[in-house]
Design a protein around this nucleic acid. Sequence first.
DNA 1: TCAGTAGTTCCGGAAATATAAACTATTGAA
DNA 2: TTCAATAGTTTATATTTCCGGAACTACTGA
Lengths: 124, 124
Amino acid sequence: MRPLLHPSIEDVTVEGILHALSDPIRVAIYADIVSQECTQNCSTFLTVSDKTIPKSTLSQHFRALREAGLIRGERRGVEVHNISRCAEIEQRFPGLIRAIVNAHAIQLKDEAAKRPSRRAARNK
Amino acid sequence: MRPLLHPSIEDVTVEGILHALSDPIRVAIYADIVSQECTQNCSTFLTVSDKTIPKSTLSQHFRALREAGLIRGERRGVEVHNISRCAEIEQRFPGLIRAIVNAHAIQLKDEAAKRPSRRAARNK
DNA sequence: TCAGTAGTTCCGGAAATATAAACTATTGAA
DNA sequence: TTCAATAGTTTATATTTCCGGAACTACTGA
């Protein structure tokens, strides 16, 4: 099995980052990896925001995040551990990742406030 | 001809913004509209960074920017004037636009420094 | 009324995405 | 060992999205 590919930091592009994070599943995954700075394996995300993602699709999403330079994946035995490369990216594009993750968090909060939550639906 | 559509600010999504700005032509256009805060019409961009864009393609790009909520287009007689909606977006997603435009500027500068410029090539 | 300009829409081909199915690699157990 | 299970990748195909030429709409000025 060929090794996981990662661009060097100077080959990382803004377009690439934006494109990778313009998919709801991928931002969700990435936000999660960034927030808990421990390494996570892929299968943690077989369901993302209540949707079941086929693992082939998931694999592609992780590849997209890797090739955009957003995360680094390392094989550890049978599984792959993923860590974010946000320190490197922060150095190259200061403030970018923070702003995006922050905006994403705001949006999640707004959505939760707007749409009646499962809990509210149960209780009415 | 049906009127130009614009989402209200609360329907603007991070994913939508990132997707719209993940295209080199669209960021270039958007960065330009943001920087010179005067209204510009579409045809100004029939060539973007030395590439000729067919006007049908250009029209799609402008639609993408409008539907993402990034710009507002108003028909003024035969042409459309475009202004950025960055104040609204700043209020909803603070720092997002600035960070992206800034990162984009950094990347342009890096590229210019790396790749020998046309001027340098002429002079050697 | 007619020509010119600015932009949109429509449509066919090209490229990108999603996913099922088959495959690879590693681990642990019998 | 050998076998089964697990984690993830690759491949093939169906679907979606994107590009750009051609035709169209709307407005303006002669």
